[in-house]
C-alpha cells in the first residue's frame, strides 16, 4: 500500500506569462492576463479573487482542460498538454460516477493504470479507511451526503498518487459546519501525503486556514494582484481563526478582494446602492475605496 499512499515530494507547478482569451463575435475576450504563479513541491497554495476573475480558468489550464493563449504551464518542468492522472482534480460540482459504488469510484484511476483487481480493491479500501469512509464502500454516491461525496472525490483524486492536487471550490456547495470539517480532513490528508495543492476558493477564511501562500487575483481580466504568505504555524486548529494574526491576515486579504469586487461590479453599483450595504471602510471614505 505504501506506494499508493506515500509519495516522494514532487509536483512543482509553474505558470509563466500566462494569458487566456476566448473568441467571441466582438473579438477575443481576455479572461486571464499576464499571470505568473508557482507551487513548490509539497506546498499548499490558494487562489482567491472576486467571482468571474478567471481563477477557475487558471486552474483548468493547470489541469490541462484549457490551453493558454500565451505563456506556458509546467509541472516538474514538463509542459502540460491535456488532462492526466498526474494532476488529480476535485470539482465544485459533485463528480462521482453515479453508476459506480464508492469503492469502484476510488478504484477507477487505478483501473485506468492497469492495476489488477485484487490489488486495487485493497488500495481503495485502505484509502477509504484513511478518510473514515470504509463503511460506505458499497454505497452508490446518491445515498451519500454532500460532504461525504466530496470526501470520496478527494480520495478518488489522490488514489492514483498524483504529483499535484487541484481543487476548484470543492466545498462551495457545503454548509458551514461541514465545510470546516472538510478543511480539517483535507489538511490532514495533505500533511500525510506531502502533495502539492492548488486550491481555488472565494472564501478568504478557508484560503488562510488551509494555505502556505495565497494569491489574490484582480477582477476580470484576472491577473495576480498580490501574493500573501501565511506564516501561521501548523498543525492549525479551528481556534486559530480567532487569533489576532489570523484576523490581521484576513483583514488584509478582505480589503484587497473588496477593492476588486467593487471594481468588478462597478458598472452595477452606485453610491446610493452602496449605502445599503454595510461595508467596513476602516476609516476610508467610499470614494477612496472605489
Amino acid at each position: 500500500m505504501s506506494e499508493v499512499v506515500v509519495k516522494a515530494p514532487q509536483g512543482h507547478i509553474e505558470v509563466k506569462n500566462f494569458s487566456l482569451s476566448y473568441d467571441s463575435i466582438e473579438g477575443p475576450v481576455e479572461a486571464v492576463t499576464d499571470t505568473q504563479i508557482h507551487v513548490k513541491p509539497g506546498e499548499f497554495v490558494s487562489i482567491v479573487g472576486p467571482s468571474g476573475c478567471g481563477k477557475s480558468t487558471l486552474l483548468n489550464a493547470v489541469a490541462g482542460f484549457l490551453k493558454p493563449t500565451t505563456g506556458i504551464v509546467t509541472v516538474d518542468g514538463e509542459k502540460v498538454n491535456g488532462p492526466s492522472a498526474e494532476r488529480g482534480m476535485v470539482f465544485q460540482q459533485y463528480s462521482l460516477f453515479p453508476w459506480k459504488t464508492v469503492r469502484e469510484n476510488v478504484e477507477f484511476g487505478l483501473k485506468m493504470r492497469g492495476m489488477p483487481r485484487s490489488q486495487r480493491e485493497r488500495a481503495a479500501r485502505t484509502l477509504l479507511g484513511l478518510a473514515g469512509l470504509e463503511a460506505f464502500e458499497k454505497h452508490y454516491p446518491e445515498k451519500l451526503s454532500g460532504g461525504m461525496k466530496q470526501r470520496v472525490g478527494i480520495v478518488r483524486a489522490l488514489a492514483t498518487g498524483p504529483k499535484v492536487l487541484l481543487l476548484d471550490e470543492p466545498f462551495g456547495a457545503l454548509d458551514a459546519q461541514t465545510r470546516v470539517i472538510m478543511q480539517q480532513i483535507l489538511t490532514n490528508m495533505w500533511q500525510r501525503l506531502k502533495i502539492s495543492v492548488l486550491f481555488v476558493t472565494h472564501d478568504i477564511d478557508e484560503a488562510i486556514f488551509l494555505s502556505d501562500r495565497v494569491y489574490c487575483m484582480t477582477a476580470r481580466p484576472g491577473s495576480i494582484k498580490a501574493e500573501i504568505p501565511i506564516p501561521l504555524e501548523r498543525p492549525r486548529q479551528q481556534s486559530m481563526m480567532m487569533s489576532s494574526e489570523f484576523l490581521g491576515l484576513r483583514r488584509g486579504l478582505m480589503s484587497l478582494i473588496r477593492e476588486e469586487s467593487i471594481k468588478a461590479m462597478g458598472g452595477e453599483l452606485n453610491d446610493m446602492g452602496m449605502q445599503g450595504l454595510n461595508i467596513e471602510l476602516h476609516g476610508h471614505s467610499l470614494a477612496d475605496v472605489i
Binding site: F65, A85, G88, F91, S95, G109, R156, A157
Partner: peptide
C-alpha cells in the same frame, strides 16, 4: 464534469 473527472483519472 464526469467526463473531465474521468480524464483527470487517466481515462
Amino acid at each position: 464534469v464526469l467526463v473531465r473527472a474521468a480524464q483527470c483519472l487517466g481515462a
